[in-house]
Amino acid sequence: MNGGGASLSVPVLTALVAGAVIAGIPLLLAALGEMVSERAGVLNIGLEGMMLTGAFTGFAATLHWGSPWAGFAAAAAAGLAFGAVMALLCVGLNLDQVVVGIALLVLAQGATSVLHRAEYGASYPRLDAVPGLEIPLIAKVPVIGAALFSQPLVVYLAIALAAAVGWLLRATSLGLELKAAGEEPEALDAAGVSVVATRVFGVLVAGTCAGLGGGFLSIVAAGVFVPFMTNGTGFIAIVIAMLSRGRPLWVVILALGFGIALSLATALQLVGVSVPIDLLNALPFVAVLVALFLFGRGKALPGALGRPFVRGART
């Protein structure tokens, strides 16, 4: 730990914050979707698998069409399709959400690995870096400016999406219905709203957002697809969704917080601190435990989370 304090120079700080944003955006997107899904009462354990699918599809589409926007569209579509499968199994057929989630995760891991080896196993192609969009004036502010305001456009769109989800949950009738579907689906059904449709919407949102998050990972953050590249991000997103309890602002804060933990490894290497890399890689998950310990207690999850709804069911 030689001279750590002195080495926290402007370039290092900038790299740390910029890295945190880049690492935090996939978390942000996936957690937003998961939050909507959990609100509606469906726990999506397969979130990681949906991210991985989005990452692969986004990478392949960007490579094929040469445009990151095509990649994002493909990633979202892949996530949506995956969400549709989950909705069919968990909401349509009332299968156990945890079991289905795990099955879909393993399926996604296997399928993306196989496809990756078949298509790109020999060449290992890379994508061009996505250009940043400098916001005039504030992009010149030291550290913050370079780190926060010269990011690719999609970063700003992701944060706008968080605001949009917040509005959806707070101010629309759909938001109310989502909450009712997760808390007391019987009451929603009695009010004449389809619990199935509401929950399917939640699952599809989760799938789409997770696909986008995965796409960001491969198209913007890494520029390459590697099997298992999500590396636990989906699970951290589930924790973020649980901790933030329907408040997108908290999703943004927590995602960036975990982003810092994820990008710390790079920053510390820049500084030249020699900490074993495995220990640094474990840092985000230690952060998860700490966050759960600090904020997770006394948090009530939606009353009907994980419980299939069957009209008129007798216990």
């Binding site: 009738s173 109310l176 909450k179 808390e183 929603l188 009010a191």
Partner: peptide, 28 residues
């Protein structure tokens, strides 16, 4: 129907429960 255990979402307010299923537009 008024059920024996009223079918209302307990964590919502009275008026929010009234609004469930009363969709006239996007905004509640």
């Amino acid at each position: 129907t008024v059920r024996q255990h009223p079918a209302l979402v307990r964590s919502l307010t009275v008026v929010e429960n009234m609004m469930l299923g009363q969709r006239r537009g996007v905004r509640s």
